[in-house]
């Protein structure tokens, strides 16, 4: 077989295939929360530096997603939800994903350091390391608490955004991280209850499969209760204010009720009968919960800019 005939039979990956490696949908949440962290910070940032900072955070998140797909290609091939991803479907070679992941990681961290500061760059490097190594390689296949601890990498973007603007880590940015960190378990597990997954077949110990739905429901309520003080504490920091406090109280009541309903299910048969309506609702409310918390913080910051907002 000549080189020419070999190339004729090989699929040529397109830019779209490489882009899919970066998990663009996950990237959108990262961009939103990082932007919020940057926007609520008390130090003004030049719009172009803010743009480059957010771009670096997004590319860093994409890089860690590419590394995740490289490592998880074996289990992605087994699960229905992931079998269409670029590597298991044969559109991108695993070595390519590894190279792209490593190159974009280095690129995003160095550029963020040069554009903003090295604290923000260090936090981005830590986030990529935590997602690719601590979550993907270590925790994901070893403990049902994988998404709880691994959730830290998804929670860090507002702290990086804040660091881009201020060059510091403060109680405000730590609380924003804590908010996403405590929110992740009830958000993810309410989804895990109603989505038919094949994690078990792939050997990934998800709580719903290792301990069952009853225990998962208990965990959802437990984490929801732990989430409330974090959410309310932000109201009494320099980035909080009455608008945020009222929003947070309302959102905690709303999401709290949704989680309580998921916990108070009489039986699994009842859940099957109404096709997990309460769990689906809790998942939807969780999305609004996080989005509106950060929107309220940004509203406070915007009003503070014109002489209102804050305490």
């Amino acid at each position: 077989m000549t080189d020419a005939s070999l190339q004729d039979t090989t699929y040529e990956a397109s830019m779209g295939d490489y882009f899919a490696l970066l998990k663009p949908r996950v990237m959108s949440l990262v961009v939103f929360t990082a932007l919020a962290g940057l926007f609520v910070a008390p130090v003004p940032v030049h719009p172009f530096i803010a743009f480059v900072g957010i771009l670096c955070i997004a590319v860093g998140a994409g890089a860690s997603a590419a590394l995740n797909m490289w490592w998880d290609a074996d289990i992605d091939r087994i699960m229905k939800r992931t079998v269409g991803r670029p590597i298991p479907s044969g559109r991108v070679q695993p070595e390519e994903a590894l190279a792209i992941g490593l190159a974009l990681s280095g690129f995003s961290v160095v550029l963020l350091g040069l554009a903003a500061n090295w604290l923000a760059a260090g936090l981005l490097a830590f986030t990529i390391f935590f997602y690719a190594v601590v979550y993907t390689i270590w925790l994901k296949r070893s403990t049902p608490q994988n998404i709880v601890i691994g959730g830290l990498s998804g929670a860090l973007p507002p702290m990086i955004g804040w660091a881009v603007a201020t060059g510091t880590v403060t109680v405000e940015s730590a609380l924003m991280v804590a908010l996403i960190f405590m929110w992740t378990p009830p958000h993810f597990w309410s989804l895990a209850i109603f989505v038919k997954s094949d994690y078990g077949r792939a050997g990934v110990p998800m709580l719903t499969e290792t301990h069952g739905r009853r225990v998962t429901r208990n965990h959802i309520l437990g984490y929801m209760v732990a989430l409330v003080p974090v959410s309310l504490a932000i109201a009494f920091t320099s980035i909080g204010g009455p608008i945020y406090l009222v929003t947070a109280v309302a959102l905690n009541l709303w999401f709290g009720k949704a989680c309580y309903d998921v916990w108070a299910r009489a039986s699994e048969d009842e859940a099957e009968a109404d096709r997990f309506a309460l769990e689906r609702r809790a998942f939807k409310v969780s999305l609004a919960y996080l989005f509106l918390h950060f929107t309220a913080l940004m509203a406070e910051a915007a009003l503070r800019g014109v002489g209102f907002g804050g305490w």
């Binding site: 190339q7 040529e12 990956a13 397109s14 830019m15 030049h46 172009f48 530096i49 480059v52």
Partner: peptide, 29 residues
């Protein structure tokens, strides 16, 4: 091969132009 990789090459060109734009913009700022 040139025809087959056209999309990829154009994509790479745009990425490089974007990179140059970022470095230039950062320098100015």
């Amino acid at each position: 091969l040139h025809e087959r990789r056209k999309g990829r090459n154009i994509g790479l060109l745009l990425l490089l132009i974007g990179f140059v734009g970022i470095v230039f913009g950062l320098t100015v700022v």
